[in-house]
């Protein structure tokens, strides 16, 4: 048997990978692991190729029993993790055997732990990805979050064996600051907002509301004013309305002016609210680890800074890979 026996599904545990590209124009978002850094490192730790499917946990972890020998790693948000009730290292290559049970205690920081198992989660690939998109129930394990008593197939475990006990150095793990900084390229339809309000947008801390999921995060904190205008044909009469347009992943829309929504991996792909900027791709990892009640701040950056942030993350991933070879 090469399955995972799900004793407890957790709050919202889904199969995710690097995402499903190429279908955005049909309204199908990429999905995929929200914190790509933690997800990729988890795969490295168990010797998986980049892109193998792993489990993304939200707030409350699952309890999982193994049915054969596997390498396992848990990365991402902080929570005490046990195997057979014994504490184990996070960000580290673990081994498990048939009958071993992995379990989570309450989270202490961050929002989303990742669990990689050697061989990857072996659900069928759908449109080129194993990622789960729960809104229409496609991909992943039956298109939904895990439930108690699910049996998840595992992939063939013929990976190059990693070194058991390899651990990612502290400095290469994400941190969870009091106020998370989200580097943001201001623009898109920011002309709809007054200059003064756009300054407020980047100065005030915004609090993550209870409505913060894989589709998007709703925030509260400031109140933005719209520029007066003659309504363009087809836009709709609300000051926040524009002629419906495509929404970038990471884009921030401001219905009502006082409840910005940052769209994430399961984004609605288009709509009629003014967008005022886009969180740079790398910092989607950061927002993914914030939870309801946490605070974020938008820091304006330009394209060069956004591209530099990508290079930095790639170098961090390479340094992590190097550190695990030793």
């Amino acid at each position: 048997m090469s399955e995972l026996l799900v004793h407890r599904g957790g709050l919202h545990t889904t199969v995710q990978d690097i995402g499903r590209d190429g279908h955005y124009s049909l309204g199908i978002p990429p999905s995929g692991a929200m914190d790509q850094y933690s997800y990729r490192v988890a795969n490295m730790l168990v010797g998986n190729p980049d892109g193998a499917a792993a489990l993304e946990v939200t707030y409350v972890g699952p309890r999982i029993e193994f049915t054969d020998d596997r390498y396992v790693a848990v990365t991402g948000a902080e929570a005490a993790v046990t195997v057979n009730s014994e504490p184990v290292e996070r960000w580290s290559t673990l081994t498990v055997r048939a009958g071993d049970v992995l379990d989570f205690a309450m989270l202490t920081a961050g929002a989303r732990p990742y669990i990689a198992v050697s061989g990857g989660i072996g659900v069928d690939s759908y449109l080129g990805s194993r990622s789960t998109y729960t809104l229409t129930g496609l991909g992943g394990f039956q298109g939904r979050a895990l439930k108690n008593d699910d049996r998840l197939p595992l992939g063939d475990d013929s990976v190059a064996p990693p070194t058991v006990g390899s651990t990612v150095p502290e400095k290469l793990r994400p941190t969870f600051p009091e106020v998370a900084t989200l580097r943001t390229m201001i623009g898109l339809c920011s002309y709809r907002i007054t200059d003064e309000s756009m300054r407020e947008f980047t100065e005030v801390p915004w609090k993550v509301t209870k409505d913060a999921d894989r589709i998007g995060y709703r925030l509260r904190g400031g109140s933005l004013r719209f520029v007066d205008r003659k309504v363009p044909h087809g836009a709709g009469s609300d000051p926040a309305n524009v002629v419906d347009l495509g929404y970038p992943i990471g884009s921030i829309q401001v219905p009502g002016g006082d409840e910005p929504i940052v769209l994430l991996n399961d984004a609605v792909t288009a709509g009629g609210y003014a967008t005022v900027g886009t969180v740079v791709s790398v910092d989607r990892d950061t927002i993914a680890q914030t939870k309801s009640g946490d605070q974020v701040r938008f820091e304006p950056v330009d394209l060069d800074a956004a591209l530099a942030a990508r290079r930095d993350r790639r170098e961090r991933l390479e340094r992590t890979r190097e550190s695990l070879r030793r």
Partner: peptide
């Protein structure tokens, strides 16, 4: 022409529908 972060390019041909 505008950037939607580092991964998107948004091109607004007109503010009004036609």
């Amino acid at each position: 022409y505008d950037y939607g972060g580092d991964e998107f390019i948004f091109v607004e041909l007109d503010e009004a529908m036609s």
